[in-house]
């Protein structure tokens, strides 16, 4: 089975069927571009992958883990869905940066908010260990309170040890997140904009920050929803450059785009969607230069006409 496998995805809004059984498979490190005219369902597909919409039918498996399966009776809790969401990063067409935070805080906010949750998980683990050890000591017949305390301390399992461990974990995570943030800033080439607010940046810079923000949660698959559509033409280049550098790193990515030239060069695979189904898919060069279906031919000639105008 492929690294990412979507099977038979259906989605309707009211009476309108937007996705009518879409299959996607993607290997690790591959870049998939999804093209198609507006209303073809490509954005909805991306939103289903990112848990912004719930598919009506179908399933998604990533790296051997089933992320959703509509045929299953069991419903995920909000917390489970949140955890699964973190497998994917999403870069929006309209950036959606948080306007009240600096560039750096935009990037580090989400991982920072996860610290408390992770600390709670760790604390629960340690408490469980502590309880197990106490039970063991009791079984061995150690009754004296002082002796129990000494033996627990040897295992670093007293209440104080646990508190210290959690504090240490939190400090370490904060430092890691800050380091990651700096690295991401360097990657998108905006180190000098560290403390700027989104309103002080150009569209291209904002989108680069949005990419860094999506990367900060360390997603397995990074998704782009028409990342350059809201940009002035002269600003698309800088964003595409960042995406290309991510491909060179070997990131698994799904890009919904209208930039045919870019899709052709950066993707390992292109998927052409029309009317809620995958009309054609395959090798980028072959697909764009030798389209088989009439719909793709029409779509491509339409796009190139627009580019010439």
């Amino acid at each position: 089975m492929a690294y990412l496998q979507l099977t038979n995805i259906h989605k309707s809004f009211g009476n309108t069927q937007v996705l009518k059984g879409v299959d996607v498979s993607l290997e690790k490190g591959e870049v998939l571009s999804i093209i198609g005219s507006s209303g073809s369902g490509k954005t909805t597909l991306l939103r289903c992958i990112n848990f912004l919409e719930n598919a009506d039918k179908g399933s998604m498996v990533l790296d051997g883990e089933t992320l959703f399966d509509c045929s299953s009776e069991i419903k995920d809790s909000d917390a489970q869905i949140r955890e699964k969401t973190l497998n994917f990063g999403l870069v929006f067409q309209s950036f959606n940066l948080f306007p009240q935070y600096t560039v750096f805080k935009n990037i580090t906010l989400a991982p920072t908010l996860l610290i408390d949750h992770d600390a709670k998980v760790l604390s629960a683990e340690l408490k469980k260990k502590q309880a197990e050890h106490k039970a063991k000591l009791k079984k061995e017949g150690v009754r004296d309170k002082k002796q129990v305390a000494v033996l627990l301390a040897q295992q670093r399992l007293t209440d104080k040890d646990i508190r210290e461990e959690i504090e240490y974990f939190k400090t370490r995570r904060k430092k890691e997140i800050a380091d990651d943030g700096e690295q991401l800033l360097a990657k998108i080439g905006l180190v000098e904009k560290r403390n700027s607010y989104p309103c002080e940046l150009s569209g291209g810079q904002q989108q680069r920050v949005a990419i860094a923000r999506a990367l900060a949660i360390k997603p397995k698959v990074l998704c782009f929803d028409e990342p350059t559509s809201a940009l002035d033409p002269e600003l698309t280049g800088e964003v595409l450059k960042v995406i290309r550098s991510l491909k060179d790193e070997g990131r698994t990515m799904i890009i919904v785009t209208h930039e045919m030239g870019f899709a052709k060069h950066v993707s390992d695979k292109i998927l052409f969607m029309s009317d809620g189904v995958v009309e054609e898919e395959g090798d980028p060069v072959q697909l764009i230069e030798n389209p088989r279906s009439e719909k793709l031919k029409a779509f491509l000639s339409n796009v190139s006409e627009k580019e010439e105008m």
Binding site: R82, L86, L113
Partner: peptide, 21 residues
């Protein structure tokens, strides 16, 4: 804009975090 909530969601934030942060 709805995009703000959605950005929070895809970053794994809870509903409370999205509202307050």
């Amino acid at each position: 804009p709805k995009g703000q909530t959605e950005a929070g969601k895809v970053l794994g934030m809870t509903k409370g975090q999205i509202f307050f942060k």
